[in-house]
Design a binder for these strands. Structure first.
Ligand code: SF4
Ligand code: SF4
Lengths: 137, 137
DNA sequence: TTTAAATTCTACCAAAAAGTAGTAATTAAA
DNA sequence: TTTAATTACTACTTTTTGGTAGAATTTAAA
């Protein structure tokens, strides 16, 4: 019952970027330091985020990354989907094969409601949740 | 957002055992076949379940395993705890360091309620949920 | 035009989880 | 007492995830 580190970092990176004005150009170096993520691993994730069209990259000197969409339009669910953590909402919990309502796994009925609540939460939470205050980065 | 395979199997094994009368002696071979889990991997998990005192082992010929407690008293949460998946309910979601209410991660407030619902669900669901019907094993 | 500061690419290494193999130990039946 | 059926133990292999190294590419500033 955990998100992968990659997803966790992606969420933290994007929400951190959302704290600055939209045009701000974020550099990997800066992000890695601020978020305390290894520079090498961070750049790997940045590349993924570019491919996922969450961010734009500006190459070369004075380059960096910008959000590609308004922060208020990027949900946590969007991020999780891109890192394939959505599938868990389909084949979930005991995940024995494809889900078939005629042959449910034993937890299905109990799990349905929490699962929906989580999904809603992820779907309605955007990366601009926080712009100030004592939050971890 | 997934349980480990080990946890999934453990849940399936115990709930399967709970379908028989309490005294029934389950053999690894039988369980592996019925549940379609590799025999070798299953026996590894059975050893863990013995150590966790979920089941009793009877060694030697005609040996096998029995539930160590009434099925109605073993919760899913008990099982997850033993396989260390409980920690996620403390250090959860973005899991950056120990949780400090004065320095929350950005998802804390949104996550609190779904998390509680999941935990309650796991805490109130016992392995005897199902004794018949078209359920996956 | 050269150079420095940045992203990108390719390839590798490490750790954890999942799964397998083989053998030793145990015990009841034959 | 021998043997077959079972669990327990030790050690390995494979797969996935997490993480690192180094060079190539791009681009604006100097
Ligand atoms: S039966 Fe329900 S709980 Fe089980 S894997 Fe399918 S969707 Fe998930
Ligand atoms: S602040 Fe809340 S959501 Fe974040 S890791 Fe701690 S308990 Fe989990």
């Amino acid at each position: 019952m955990q998100l992968s580190n990659t997803s966790k970092y992606a969420i933290r990176i994007l929400s951190y970027m959302a704290r600055q004005e939209h045009e701000y150009v974020h550099k990997s170096n800066e992000l890695a330091q601020s978020l305390d993520i290894s520079y090498k691993f961070l750049t790997k994730i940045m590349t993924e985020l570019v491919k996922g069209e969450f961010i734009l990259s500006i190459r070369g000197r004075e380059g960096g990354f910008q959000l590609n969409h308004p922060a208020s339009s990027i949900t946590i669910l969007d991020i999780l989907k891109h890192f394939q953590e959505l599938t868990d909402f389909h084949t979930c919990i005991l995940g024995n094969g494809a889900c078939n309502p005629h042959k449910k796994c034993i937890l299905h009925d109990k799990w349905a409601s929490p699962r929906q609540e989580i999904k809603n939460m992820f779907a309605t939470t955007t990366i601009d949740i926080v712009n100030s205050g004592d939050f971890k980065l």
